[in-house]
């Protein structure tokens, strides 16, 4: 039996529904047949993106490897009619290192000693349980 496992992330493409929304159909038609878009244009809602990915994990401990990616972009004009549809695949993806810097955040972080003392509840009360137990 193969130990590899396939994962489908994001939107589940349904070819039949896709053909129902050619260029010129309305925003409601798109919503009806394809469902809520995975995401829309960040700053204005006139582009729908349906994003789906396929990953494979060859053995249980390996990372999931991205093998397929399909992004369907549907552009609307001002009064909500589909003007253009574009398809991006894995090949369009760019490969680069993301910025390693992160914006600092605050908040109290647990030090090991604190954890041992608070977590030590477990340690402390298991000792107490044993010793305390002897008492009564």
């Amino acid at each position: 039996c193969t130990t590899s496992e396939v994962f489908h992330n994001g939107y589940v493409v349904d070819q039949a529904a896709l053909d129902l929304v050619p260029v010129g159909s309305s925003r409601e038609q798109v919503l009806l047949s394809l469902g809520t878009p995975s995401t829309t244009a960040t700053f204005d809602g006139e582009v729908f993106y349906y994003i789906s990915q396929k990953r494979v994990r060859s053995v249980a401990f390996m990372k999931q490897k991205l093998v397929e990616q399909q992004i369907l972009a549907i552009y609307f004009d001002k009064n909500g009619i589909v003007t253009q549809e574009a398809n991006y695949t894995l090949q369009d993806g760019k490969v680069f290192d993301t910025i390693s810097r992160t914006t600092p955040t605050g908040g109290r972080d647990l030090t090991f000693l604190q954890q041992l003392l608070s977590g030590g509840g477990g340690a402390a009360n298991s000792v107490k349980n044993i010793l305390g137990g002897m008492g009564n």
Binding site: Q115, L116, S118, G119, G120, G121, G122, A123, A124, S126, V127, I130
Partner: peptide, 9 residues
Amino acid sequence: DQPTGSFGI
């Protein structure tokens, strides 16, 4: 969360 530290003999 539960205490996960344990002291054992």
